[in-house]
Structures are given as C-alpha cells and as structure tokens.
C-alpha cells in the first residue's frame, strides 16, 4: 500500500512539466526515503534524477518498496487537471495495475480522483559516482534559461567555460557568434539574484543546447540553478524542489574526435 499526500500539489505539476518532454516512460520508485525517479532520454545523452524526500509529504505511507511505471505525458495530463493550490495524494496498492491521483481543493469543497493505468518498464538503473567538480556555478534560474534560449537562436551547441573572469557561455552558427559572460556577484538585494562561482580549476565543456533548453523547463521550480562542471564528465544542472528534494539533469558533453 502506497499513500503519499503532498500539500503543495502544484510542485508535482511543475516537476512533471519539467520531465515530460525529456523522458517518455519511467519508473517512479517509492521507498522509506522518498519518491524518486531516474531515467534517460531515448538517445541516452541526458539523464534525470528526481528525489522528493518522504519528510516533505504531509503523509507518507509506503509499506514496501514499489516501482510504478508511468507514461510521463499521460501523468502530466492528469496532474494538469489539479489546481495549483490543490493537495495531491498518490495512491496505489501493492500489486496494482493502476495509480490514483486525488486532488483536493484547499478549502475541501472539491475532491477529484483520477486513475491512471501503470505500465511495465524495463529500465536500467545507473550508478552515479560522487564527483569532485572543477567548477560550480549558482545563478538565477531565469537568467540561465534566458541565456540558453538566446544562444539557441544562433547555434546548436554551447561552450561553457569557467575561469577567474566568470562563467562564459559561447555559441557559433551560420550567422555569427555569441559570448555571454556572467561574473561572480553577491552584492544583490535578494540572495536568489546572486551569481556564485566556485572554481577549483578552469574548465571548458561543449553541450547540445537542445537538451539545456529542455532542462530549463524546471525553471518555475526554483529561483536558482546550480551547474556543476568537470572535464570529461556530464554536467549536472540542478533545481531544488522546495525544501523536499531536487531534480538533477545530467548531460553528456560533446567530445573532440
């Protein structure tokens, strides 16, 4: 028996909106730790890892570890029917072939339940090693989204370079080139407007902008994004999910032949 009650149901809507274009089908894993997902896109270039810790739910009952195979675009369709302020409860029996999403309006005057068929998904779980990063950039998530969107009108790839000068996002295309440099800046009115660059070593990596733009669908979840870089490793683009967890997107770099 699984029963997870999330008061901030809107968070789950935002989570699904940030996943559904990247991954078609995925297993949600429920354990005492929390509600999690790990999945790659169909070309295995990007991987997403979601964790919503059990403490973040108002009620979290998970009698035994359960893996729920779901089509993410169908799940997003169902969650779209919930109000942004609704309380969302996810329910499933141990041997269930369906999952129930229950939506309650904040003043309890409207209660809806949506039942969605589950699916069997063969997914391979990858071990993500703990890495020491050469550079970690924290910046406003909207700024990062803007940069990815702007650069993708000019080129297909972005070179992200971190030096003492700051973090530089560069692209080139048929019409020309573009460079955007963001400097370390903590003298801001609000902490979420800060750009914080921690650099152990200079690092420069090339990535496909198409995937970066897909990751920025998570922008409504968090004011800040964390970009962690190391030579010859996938970049990690992380958005916090309130105080209860995170979405981490991993993107494999383009490598010189």
């Amino acid at each position: 028996m699984l029963e997870l009650r999330l008061v901030q149901g809107g968070l789950l809507k935002k989570v699904l909106d940030s996943l559904k274009d990247l991954v078609n089908d995925a297993n949600f894993d429920c354990s005492a730790t929390g509600f999690s997902l790990q999945a790659m896109d169909s070309s295995h270039v990007a991987l997403v890892a979601l964790l919503l810790r059990s403490e973040g739910f108002e009620h979290y009952r998970c009698d035994r570890n359960l893996s729920l195979g779901m089509n993410l675009s169908n799940m997003a369709k169902m969650l779209k029917c919930a109000g942004n302020d609704d309380i969302v409860t996810i329910k499933a029996d141990d041997a269930a072939d369906s999952v129930t999403f229950m939506f309650e309006s904040p003043n309890q005057d409207k209660i809806a339940d949506f039942d969605m068929k589950l699916m069997d998904i063969d997914s391979e779980h990858l071990g993500i090693p703990e890495a020491e990063f050469q550079a970690i950039v924290r910046m406003p998530s909207a700024e990062f989204a803007r940069i990815c969107k702007d650069l993708s009108t000019i080129g297909d790839t972005v070179v992200i370079s971190v030096t003492k000068e700051g973090v530089k996002f560069s692209t080139r295309g048929d019409i020309g080139t573009a460079n955007i440099v963001c400097r370390h800046n903590t003298s801001v009115d609000k902490p979420e407007e800060a750009t914080i660059i921690e650099m152990e070593e200079t690092v420069s990596l090339t990535f496909a902008l198409r995937y970066m733009n897909s990751f920025t669908k998570a922008t409504p979840l968090a004011n800040q994004v964390t970009i962690s870089l190391s030579s010859d490793l996938p970049v990690v683009v992380e958005y916090k999910v309130a105080e209860m967890g995170h979405i981490r997107f991993y993107l494999a770099p383009k490598i010189e032949e």
Binding site: V45, H125, E257
Partner: peptide
Amino acid sequence: GSKQSTITRFFSKV
C-alpha cells in the same frame, strides 16, 4: 569536429 557522447559512457549499470 566534436561528437556527442552518451551518459552510459560515464555511468555504469548497477
């Protein structure tokens, strides 16, 4: 030119 690598090049199955 550069070639797109895949996640499975870096992370292995568990």
